[in-house]
Simulated scan of single mutants.
Amino acid sequence: MIRRYSHKDKIKVIDLFRRNTPKYFDPSEEFDLENYLLRELEDYFVFEKNSEIIGAGGINYFPEEKLARISWDMIEPNSQGKGIGRELIQYRMNLLSKNHAVEIVMVRTSQHAYKFYEKVGFELEKVERDFWARNFHLYQMKMTK
C-alpha cells in the first residue's frame, strides 16, 4: 500500500535511510534528510507492507520552471529488486501526469541508483563527481512528460 507520509513516520523513514547507508547514501546525508522531512517536504509517500514501511519517495515542485523533482527514494534492502521501487515511481508519475503545470520531471541520484531511473525512462543529463559526499556522484536525470 502506498500512502502519504505522516510526521509519525519520521523515525521509520530515518531507519530506512540508515539501512541503505553506506551502499546508497553517505552517513552525512542523514542531516539533509531530516531537514527535508521537517522543512522541504511537499509530496512524500511511504510504501507499507504488513504495517511496515519498506519504501519511501517524494516529489518537490518548481512551478516557475514547470518542473517536478523526484526526491529521497529508498527501499528496504531486503525488498529491493521486487518491483517496489518501480511501483513507487509509477505512483508518483501517475500523479504528475495529471498536473498540467509540470512539463519536466527530474531526479538527482548517484552512480549507485541511476540505472534504475534509466529503466523507468529517465535520461542522464549530467554527472558531477563527489557531489553528495566523497565517492557519491550526482547523476542528474530528466524526463519530459
Rank of each mutant, 00 (worst) to 15 (best):
M1E: 14
I2L: 09
R3F: 13
Y5T: 02
K8D: 13
I11L: 10
K12W: 04
I14Q: 04
I14A: 04
D15M: 04
F17R: 10
R18S: 13
P22E: 14
Y24H: 08
F25W: 12
D26A: 15
E30K: 07
F31P: 00
D32H: 10
E34A: 09
E34Q: 15
N35S: 11
L41C: 03
E48S: 09
S51C: 10
E52Y: 09
I53H: 13
I54H: 09
G55F: 03
G57P: 12
I59R: 00
Y61C: 00
Y61W: 01
P63Y: 06
E64Y: 11
L67E: 13
A68V: 06
A68M: 06
R69F: 00
R69L: 06
S71N: 02
D73L: 12
M74K: 03
M74N: 10
N78I: 10
Q80E: 14
G81D: 05
I84L: 11
G85R: 03
R86K: 15
E87G: 06
L88G: 09
I89D: 12
I89G: 01
Q90A: 14
Q90W: 10
M93W: 00
M93K: 00
L95G: 01
L96A: 00
S97K: 14
H100V: 02
A101Q: 13
E103F: 07
R108Q: 07
H112P: 02
F116K: 05
F116A: 06
Y117H: 12
E118Q: 14
E118R: 12
V120K: 08
E123L: 11
F131T: 08
A133Q: 11
N135P: 02
H137A: 14
L138C: 15
Y139A: 13
Q140W: 08
Q140I: 02
K145S: 01
K145F: 01
